[in-house]
């Protein structure tokens, strides 16, 4: 554990809590892509199957359980509790265009051809692209509420901090996880354009982020 890794996990947690609180307090999931949230729930589910097989640390176990619980709670709020506020019209990204290549890639590239390893790889690849329905929705409607952009900011920050963590781990312990690092870098690139808009529009005091 290093400071980048811890800060990354905290950012990730903050992002998820921001989204959950936004939906809960406003009693609405307008502007939120349910598809992205379903994909994140699938990411956590397929990645954390090792909760049942190996024990790493109390921190590891607790965080996994928290991420799973919060992601399912988010999906529940969007698709059940506040379903009438869900903007399915604009959440029109074709998820199969992500799932099919990701399933294919995880069968081609993995550390071992076992169900657990292939599912772990699938979760890593899927996480890299899971935000795309959300970014697509923002592009389609041309705007995002500032609270939604804060969510995306912390999610992107988490990815950037994980890269710093890998650089640190490579230099201090020679750790290099090729699958995680390559897809992590790809994932972070998706946020660059958003980061630029966030800094130029939201931080400078606009309540909504409108696309130019």
């Amino acid at each position: 554990m290093n400071v980048f890794r811890l800060a990354g996990d905290v950012s990730h947690l903050v992002a998820i809590i921001i989204l959950l609180l936004k939906i809960w307090r406003s009693r609405s999931c307008a502007g939120i892509s349910g598809k992205s949230q379903l994909l994140f729930a699938l990411v956590f589910t397929t990645r954390y199957l090792d909760l049942f097989t190996v024990y790493i640390s109390a921190y590891n176990t607790i965080m996994k359980v928290v991420f799973l619980a919060l992601s399912y709670a988010t999906v529940y709020l969007i698709y059940m509790r506040f379903r009438n506020t869900y903007d399915s019209e604009n959440d029109s990204f074709r998820v199969e265009f992500l799932l099919v290549p990701v399933i294919g890639l995880s069968f081609l590239e993995h550390y071992a051809f076992t169900p657990m390893e292939v599912l772990w790889t699938f979760s890593i690849f899927l996480e890299a692209v899971a935000i795309m329905p959300q970014l697509f929705m923002i592009t389609k409607t041309g705007e995002a509420e500032s609270i939604t952009t804060h969510y995306l900011f912390f999610l992107g920050l988490y990815r950037a901090l994980y890269i710093a963590n890998w650089v640190w781990r490579y230099h201090t312990e020679g750790f290099f996880d090729q699958i995680a690092v390559v897809s992590g870098v790809v994932q972070t690139i998706f946020y660059c354009d958003f980061f630029y808009l966030y800094v130029t529009k939201v931080v400078q005091g606009r309540s909504k982020m409108s696309l130019p």
Partner: peptide
């Protein structure tokens, strides 16, 4: 042959 990595990261 590739080595299975330890999954301590989230």
């Amino acid at each position: 042959k590739k080595e299975v990595k330890s999954k301590d990261e989230l």
